[in-house]
Amino acid sequence: MHDRFYRSLYRIRRVEEEIIRVYPTDKIKSPVHLSIGQEAVSVGVCEALRADDVVFGSYRSHAVYLAKGGDLKKMIAELYGKATGCAKGKAGSMHLVDAAHGVMGASAVVGTTIPHAAGYAYALKLRRKDSVVVSFFGDGGADEGVFYESLNFAALKKLPMIFICENNSYAIHTHQLCRQPTANIAERARVFGVPAERIEDDVLRVHERVGAAVKALRAGEPGPFFFECLTYRWKEHVGPNDDFHLGYRTREEADPWMKNDQVKRLAGLLEADQRRRIESEVEAEIQAAFAFAEESPFPDGSELFTDMFK
């Protein structure tokens, strides 16, 4: 199990480090909202899911996309704006999608995909399926009205879905406590009668608790479930750089999160041989994905008008 977790964590981290490395060349023609530091949430959750479960994300969805099984080559090609990208260059980094692997889309407008997850879950329930839906959003999403409307509806209809609030404390540069009177997002879900808990930055704990919820939903227990996963964004809101110089947060605030790096933690749980094998396989895969993106053609001009209607 730890090898699987490590592979996924390491892969996400390294993909994004490669994005950072390539970014100054301007070959990636898309704003990137990096997940570095937040990988543990996506990996802990998605390792508890099956291929036929689906996830909905936000503009910061590289980690969710990869953790759920989204195609890496198609993701990098999408960032390059190439015809071989997951959306043929029409999505960019903010709308990654891989429907065949249950990555059902992501929105740049905060909170927007939360009700999509509820609607998808409604359809699953109507059709008596035992798959589940996971909605990923941030603490900023919990500012939005649609979050409460969706929570209300999901609770009302007892939908087979899991709310994952990735609380990294900041909406762009504004701290949660400048936007919300109390840091009690999980508590708010309980008011709707939804079982909710807050989980520290611990990939194994996330997996264990979300896994239990998934199991309950598959067994036909009423949903939804709610998890507020505490995490921390290491890089700037958008772009490849650090932003501690801006002054809205301090390096000291980040230190404990960086010390608790779940990538390093899982690396330490593996035998050296096993770890090195995983790393070299992942490195080769990443190299191949960037080469694929580099070599792929841009979409033909005729693509401008395709995909509007059937």
């Binding site: 995909t113 009700p115 997850a117 609607g119 409604y122 649609v146």
Partner: peptide, 15 residues
């Protein structure tokens, strides 16, 4: 909940 219910309709149609 016009906002969320429109999103719910979108999620249903995705499914």
């Amino acid at each position: 909940s016009e906002d969320a219910m429109t999103g719910v309709a979108i999620g249903m149609s995705l499914a």
